[in-house]
Design a protein around this nucleic acid. Sequence first.
DNA 1: CTATATGCAAATTGTTTGCATCATA
DNA 2: TATGATGCAAACAATTTGCATATAG
Lengths: 140, 140
Amino acid sequence: MKRLTDELRKKHLKVTPQRLAIYNYLSQTTSHPNVESIYNALKPDYPSISIATVYKNVASLRDAGLISEINVGEDCCRYDAETKFHPHLVCKKCGTVIDCFFDDNDCCLASVKDKIKKDLDFDIENETLYFYGICSKCRE
Amino acid sequence: MKRLTDELRKKHLKVTPQRLAIYNYLSQTTSHPNVESIYNALKPDYPSISIATVYKNVASLRDAGLISEINVGEDCCRYDAETKFHPHLVCKKCGTVIDCFFDDNDCCLASVKDKIKKDLDFDIENETLYFYGICSKCRE
DNA sequence: CTATATGCAAATTGTTTGCATCATA
DNA sequence: TATGATGCAAACAATTTGCATATAG
């Protein structure tokens, strides 16, 4: 929390109750909610919150590098408070997006990234890796 | 061409001039065009073509597994006649999407995919891997 | 002759914008 | 008290839909 307000102030972003609530909600869930879900989740505690405010805040938090945006081909984006790279699994049946944390997440792409730099002269800043399929619950 | 018409008929999709033109255009370019670009490229030869027809056709070709959809976080999708898995590089400055064909594209993700199946009990059907950064031209 | 596709315009949906008011720094 | 944020409604842009007509199988 302290770290968040410091980061915000460093970027000249004001520490507002709505902004904190959005970040906190993202920190407490693994559901990778979209804007509408965040909005609906916060409405009980923040009855006057506007969906435009949620849109503006996920954009500012993303631009500040404090949250990450997930685009698995739906008609809207999802958001995640975890900004360290990790692959995501997307169930084609139920739509769930599952985090994939392995010890070697960082190095599993190392050789490809190396080739991209050397062979294609491209400077990588970040990457996304999505696996699409059927989750264990849906297979039953 | 023969293969395409066979595949279409097998799926009860009619072989129309517009459908063939869309597929052919995608086969002949590496620019990963979006619907509007495809529409603009075909309009000279097909003056009566509708953008709704392009939308419907990229969807039917994608569902038939004949083209693939690329979603790198823009406000619209791009399309690619190459359906075999390969990573894409996305330049954050000029927006270009570059194909990444390496001999070991298939096996570079093998160990992660293996763990996803064994540890998370998730059946992978396909995947997307996008690298974001700055291309060599934009760095100059 | 039947089933699917086309092309047009209208409708829909996620997202952005303009602006007056409000709160943080 | 100045700068950035909120909340609302209107605007926007990508995409989908309904439907009459046309064309492939």
